[in-house]
Simulated scan of single mutants.
Amino acid sequence: MATMIGYLRVSTEEQASSGLGLDAQRDTIQRYADAHGWDVAWYEDAGLSAKSLARPQLQAALDRLGVSPKRRDVDGIVVAKLDRLSRSVADFAGMLELARSRRWALVAIDLGVDTSTPTGELVANVMMSVAQWERRIIGERTSAAMQAAKRAGRHMGRVSVLPEATADRLLELRATRTLAATADALNAEGLTTATGVPWTENAVCKAHKRVAQTSPTPRHSSKDLPLTI
C-alpha cells in the first residue's frame, strides 16, 4: 500500500473562508486516499501564505521526500488544491523538477492530475501559470483602486477608534508635554492606542492630529501646544 504525504495549508485570510479550511482539505484528501488505497501522513501549515515555499511543514515534507527512493517511506505528496502548495510558477517548476529527479508523485485533486505522468505535469504547469497571472491582475487592480481612492481623498484600510477618555487624556497631556512625555504618561497610566499597543512619539503625533480634527469642542487649541516635539 502506497503512503502519501497529505499537505494542508491555509492563510490567515482564508481560515474563515468556506471550502478553504483545513478540515475541508483534510476530508477531500482522505476520501481520495481511501478510494486509491493510500495511507496518509499529514503535514499542515496554518496561517501561512503560498507566496514562497518557506513554510515549516512543507519543508519538512519535502525533506522526507528528498531521501533516496530506496530509503524513502512515502511515495509522493497530495493536496486538495494545487494552490495549497504554491502560487508561484517558478517555485512550482522547481518542485516539479525535484519530484522528477527524486521520482515521487505530486497529486492535485482539484485538477485530477498526477505529475508522475506527462499529461498531469503539463496541466499542472498551465494551471500554476494561470494562478500567478490572476494574483498579479488582482494586485494591479487593488493598487489602482487604492490610488484612485487616495486621489479622491478617501481613506483606505481599517479605521481604529480611540476611546473618548483616552483621547481627552491625550489632549490634556499634549497641552503641557512633548510627544515623548505624553507617550510615557499614557503608557504609565495603562492607556493604549486604538489598536491596543503601547504609545510611541509617532503614535501620539498621529492620534493628536486626528483627535484635534474630529473633536467638535477641542479642549486645547494648537497655539496652546508646546513647540518642542
Rank of each mutant, 00 (worst) to 15 (best):
A2V: 01
T3H: 07
I5E: 03
L8S: 05
R9T: 05
R9Q: 03
E13F: 09
E14D: 15
Q15R: 14
Q15P: 03
A16L: 11
S18K: 14
G19W: 13
G19H: 10
G19Y: 09
G19F: 10
G21H: 02
A24N: 08
Q25C: 08
Q25H: 13
R26C: 07
D27K: 15
Q30S: 15
R31I: 04
W38C: 02
W38M: 02
D39K: 06
W42Y: 15
A46G: 05
A46F: 06
L48S: 08
S49F: 07
S49E: 03
A50F: 04
A50Q: 00
A50P: 01
K51V: 10
A54K: 13
R55C: 06
Q57I: 04
Q57Y: 02
Q59H: 02
Q59V: 01
A61M: 01
L62F: 01
G66D: 12
V67Y: 09
P69S: 08
P69W: 05
P69K: 12
K70N: 12
K70I: 12
R72L: 13
V74R: 08
G76V: 11
G76F: 07
D83L: 08
R87W: 12
D91R: 02
A93H: 08
A93D: 06
M95A: 00
M95W: 01
E97R: 04
E97V: 01
L98E: 02
R100L: 02
R100I: 00
R102K: 15
I109D: 08
L111D: 08
V113L: 13
T115G: 07
P118I: 08
T119C: 01
L122Y: 13
A124C: 06
N125Y: 05
M128L: 14
S129H: 08
Q132W: 11
W133F: 13
E134S: 01
R135T: 00
R136L: 09
G139A: 06
E140R: 05
A144W: 03
Q147N: 01
A148K: 00
G153Y: 06
H155R: 14
V159Y: 11
V161A: 14
L162E: 07
P163E: 10
E172P: 01
E172S: 12
R174E: 03
R177K: 15
T178N: 09
T178Q: 10
T178P: 02
T178S: 15
T178H: 06
A180G: 05
A180S: 12
A181I: 01
A183L: 03
D184C: 03
A185H: 05
A185L: 02
L186P: 03
N187I: 06
E189Y: 01
T192S: 09
A194H: 07
A194C: 06
P198M: 12
E201P: 04
V204G: 00
K206H: 09
H208P: 02
V211P: 03
A212K: 11
T214F: 08
P216L: 13
P218F: 12
S221F: 09
K223L: 06
L225G: 11
L227M: 13
L227Q: 15
